[in-house]
Structures are given as C-alpha cells and as structure tokens.
Amino acid sequence: MSGPVTQRPPVVETHGLGKVYSAGTQAEVVALRGVDLRIERGAFVAIMGPSGSGKSTLMNLLGCLDTPDTGTYWCDGVDVATLDAEERAALRLDKIGFVFQGFNLLPRMSALENVAMPLGYANVPTAERLQRAADALAAVGLDTRGHHRPSELSGGQQQRVAIARALINQPPILLADEPTGALDSRTGEEILALFKRLRDDDHTVVLITHDAEVAAHADRTYVMHDGELQPQEGTP
C-alpha cells in the first residue's frame, strides 16, 4: 500500500508583506502595502508595474536581498524571518536564480566559466562544476558556445548564458528582472519562449516587467500600483 502523497508547498507565499523607507521622516516612502502572493511550483508569473510602483522592492524581498517591515514570506516552505543574514544568503544560493536586464557576465571569463561560477560558492569540485555548466548551457541551446567570452556573443546569447548561470543550482525559483529590456523584440521573444520551456520543466519563473506585451507571455499577471499588488483582470 502506498503512503499519502505529500503536498509540495508553494515556492512563494507572502501574507501582508509591507516595506517602508525612511519611516517617520518627511522622506517616508511606503513601497509595499499588505502584499499577499502565492505562486505554485511550475508557474510562469509576471509582476507588472511602472517605475516607482513597488515591483523592484517586491523582487528584492522575494529574492531575499532585503527584509520586510511587516508580514511574512515563506520561500519554498521556509519562513525567511527565522533566518539570520548568513542563512538568508545560503537560502538565496539554494532556492533562487537571478536574471537581470544587464546580463552581469564577467568579461574575462568564458561562457562556461560564467555559468559555473555559483558552484564555486557551493564548494563543488571543478570537474563537476564544468560538467554541470556544460549541461546548463546545452539546456539553453548554447552547447557550442561554452568557450566564447561575452564580447564574442550576441545580446540574446549573453542572456541565455545568464539564464544558464541562474539555473546551475537547480533552484525552484527563477527571478527575472526586465530580462528582455536590453534585447531587440525578436531576441526577446526567444528568451520568453525559453522561459516557457523552463516552466514546462517544473521551474517557477517570476518575471518583473513594465511592459504589458512581455507580461502577456506569462500564465498569470499581477499589477503593482502604489505598493499594492492585484491580479490583472482576465487572468486566472
């Protein structure tokens, strides 16, 4: 007789998340107001809003780069508030892959070395690091470009290298901040198609964007306005 099926926790669950900068001063800014968000594993979610809406603050909290003033955040079943700074850094390395608009690749390193870099922090042996990096590059369609430096790659190829690097630890959450912002529209479409393939492979993609056309590729879109988060009308 088989045992009960264990329910996997959501990879992101927030309740009443709030963040205030310069509280109690004339410069006080309420960046987030009571944000409730639940994202299941294998989802592709967009968080959309103009500059100053609070979406970057929310991304920093979801990425464990900052801590909320109020509310709770459970990251893949872990209450982030119970962790000290060192434990938060370890959680970030294990649970979250980051993709940025500017690629953030090291110019003197090959694509393979850039992708392998996070495994150095995890003390993975060199041979295994390089093999896993080669596998990650193959997963984003760049298996023949491992020895090229960033300057020898197109913008779209550089972003694929950055995505492979974000995936190297097999994190449950991929946080992508304006990942197509520096790309032409056709290349941007290719990167968004890659995110859909990653979702189909059980990765969870959280896309931060100001662009409604980019957000439309996600399965579900939330809209941020004045620090409040609401589902976009018409999305499930």
Results as ranks from 00 to 15, higher is better:
89 A>S: 15
22 S>Y: 14
207 L>D: 03
166 A>R: 03
133 A>Q: 13
69 D>F: 03
69 D>M: 08
112 L>K: 13
162 A>M: 06
24 G>R: 07
210 H>F: 04
131 Q>C: 02
24 G>Y: 08
168 I>G: 06
100 F>C: 04
53 S>R: 11
154 S>N: 05
189 E>R: 15
119 L>Q: 07
151 S>R: 14
53 S>V: 11
198 L>N: 06
77 G>Y: 11
39 I>P: 03
167 L>N: 02
89 A>F: 06
152 E>T: 01
187 T>S: 15
84 D>R: 09
180 T>Q: 10
113 E>I: 00
178 E>G: 08
123 N>V: 00
103 F>W: 08
145 R>G: 01
68 P>E: 10
90 A>W: 03
76 D>N: 15
128 E>F: 00
177 D>H: 08
56 S>W: 02
129 R>W: 06
43 A>G: 01
159 Q>V: 11
193 A>M: 11
70 T>Y: 03
83 L>I: 08
170 Q>D: 15
54 G>K: 10
26 Q>K: 14
219 D>Y: 01
203 H>L: 01
191 I>N: 10
230 Q>N: 12
127 A>G: 03
67 T>K: 12
232 Q>I: 00
109 M>Y: 14
190 E>F: 00
148 H>C: 14
50 P>K: 14
103 F>Q: 02
130 L>D: 05
63 G>N: 08
28 E>D: 02
207 L>T: 07
104 N>Y: 15
51 S>A: 13
95 K>A: 14
13 E>N: 04
179 P>C: 04
99 V>L: 04
233 E>N: 04
202 D>P: 00
24 G>D: 08
225 H>W: 06
140 V>H: 08
32 L>V: 05
133 A>S: 13
163 I>S: 03
6 T>I: 14
89 A>M: 08
212 A>P: 13
231 P>F: 07
18 G>F: 09
128 E>M: 13
233 E>D: 14
